[in-house]
Design a protein around this nucleic acid. Structure first.
Length: 411
RNA sequence: GCCAGGGUGGGGUAGUUGGUCAUCCUAGGGGACUGUGGAUCCCCCGACCCGGGUUCGAGUCUCGGCCCUGGCCCCA
């Protein structure tokens, strides 16, 4: 038997309903903040992704050549494509641009819990605003989206300027090593590494910085910075809006195009793959031949959110009506089913040529109400409405039956 | 790429020291019934992940692969 490709998943209707319901909650938060949805191609020129991340990532991408010999790749993430689109299509649009997206991405990695080869991201990008309030807004949206989705999470906010200031004297390669140690909290290795670089004193400063929980404390380690005023304003805005977060100046956020504020969120009930959101301010446009526009944004690992929500995200069941009829009642039953559907109610008819009893048996398993249309109902013009949960049954006219079912759904 | 544990009908399971090509539950389909069901009875459907090896004989032992689960690595 044919299997689905490794790291991909099939979603049955129940699961799709749960996913769509969470997706729409996130979308709705975006809408309320003015973030409008954009869509970019599923695949792009390979170059778009290697330009800023290097050739090394090719091994973890789905790369292929099309019939015209173009080197293409399934998108491993969306931010680069959104910025590419901004340069191509929207450079002169009034700033700031508030955009969001919900889309699938592809990475060739070893699947494990919360990590698949095809996965979905819900992302938000704020392009062309370079201010404390812009930084704050994107974090507020991030926090509100996760909260509205119903996840329990810890939000950690940091800023790259502080650590960069401390290690500015080191060679770029050494900076990378130091940041990697700090990110993993390997303090002993950090001390050794810095001692070998002839900077043994730096280790304690860096460790203190990473453990700092207030900005004031952090600035006593680094000294005052040009960015400190803006950071202060950003944090003040977060506090004013009521965002729950903790400071962590050790956040490194992978690659070099992040420039300032960085933040990450972790679900508290997941295992190794517990990061459900990551973002920050970045400058990317100049790499793709555009202006050096300031941007910030984040992406939510949608599948991890769904894992974190688990069973708690069961969608509310919609009211379902089974239209049950005899041969004599079929024509009338079709009219009746159309009336229910026109009223927005899900109505299903028998397709198995079952008898009345068997149709009811089926309806009792799959529906909330049965509407019985036989010879008697066809002649009287009324319908028999049976509540399949209570067994209560009555004869009433079509409009009244629709009203009663509609009222049930509204509860 | 590395480590650990797994793969028996659609879902969940049993399977003795290798020995009737396999248990039970559930779901699904059909029948009895036929204008009131989800009851009962009967029937049907449908599985040992794939390939090699050992053996008279492999679901069971062995090797390889594939896939799943968790972890490492990575995480744009």
């Amino acid at each position: 038997m044919l299997q689905k490709p490794r790291g991909t998943r099939d979603f049955l209707p129940d699961e799709m309903e749960a996913r769509r319901s969470v997706e729409w909650r996130m979308r709705e938060v975006g809408r309320r903040w003015g973030y409008r949805e954009v869509c970019t191609p599923e695949f792009e020129d390979l170059e778009l992704f290697t330009m800023r991340s290097g050739e090394g990532i090719i091994g973890e991408m789905y790369v292929f050549e099309d019939k015209g010999g173009r080197k293409l790749a399934l998108r491993p993430e969306i931010t680069a494509a959104v910025i590419r689109m901004y340069i191509n299509e929207a450079k002169v649009a009034p700033k700031p641009l508030r955009w969001c997206y919900f889309a699938d991405c592809f990475r060739y990695e070893r699947p494990q819990k919360g990590r698949y080869r095809q996965f979905w991201q819900f992302g938000v990008e704020l392009i062309g605003a370079d201010s404390a309030m812009a930084d704050a807004e994107i974090i507020m949206v991030a926090s509100e989206m996760l909260t509205t989705a119903g996840v329990r999470f810890d939000l950690k906010v940091g800023h790259l300027a502080l650590m960069r200031n401390l290690i500015a004297d080191l060679e770029p390669a050494d900076q990378r090593k130091v940041r990697a140690h700090l990110d993993k909290r390997e303090f002993d290795s950090l001390r050794e590494t810095l001692a070998a670089m002839g900077k043994p004193d730096l280790a304690q400063s860096l460790i203190s910085l990473v453990e700092c929980r207030t900005l004031k404390e952090a600035l006593t380690i680094t000294g005052d910075l040009p960015e400190s005023k803006r950071i202060e304003q950003t944090l003040a805005a977060l506090d004013a809006y009521g965002v729950q977060y903790s400071l962590n100046f050790g956040i490194a956020r992978g690659l070099d195009y992040y420039t300032g504020i960085v933040f990450e969120a972790f679900a508290d009930n997941l295992g190794a793959e517990n990061q459900i959101l990551g973002g920050g301010t970045y400058r990317l446009a100049h790499l793709f031949g555009g202006d050096d526009v300031a941007s910030c944004g984040f992406a939510i690992g949608f599948d991890r959110v769904m894992v974190s929500l688990g069973e708690s995200s069961r969608p509310r069941q919609e009211t379902i009506v089974g239209i049950v009829c005899t041969d004599e009642g079929r024509a009338r039953a079709l009219e009746v089913s159309r009336a229910f559907r026109s009223a927005g109610i899900r109505a299903e008819m028998d397709l198995m040529e079952r008898g009345l009893g068997a149709q009811l048996a089926h309806a009792s398993k799959t529906a909330d109400f049965a509407v019985v249309i036989g010879k008697r109902e066809t002649e009287s013009g009324e319908v028999t409405l049976k509540n399949l949960k209570t067994g209560e049954q009555k004869s009433l006219d079509l409009a009244a039956a629709i009203a009663e079912v509609g009222a049930h759904g509204a509860r």
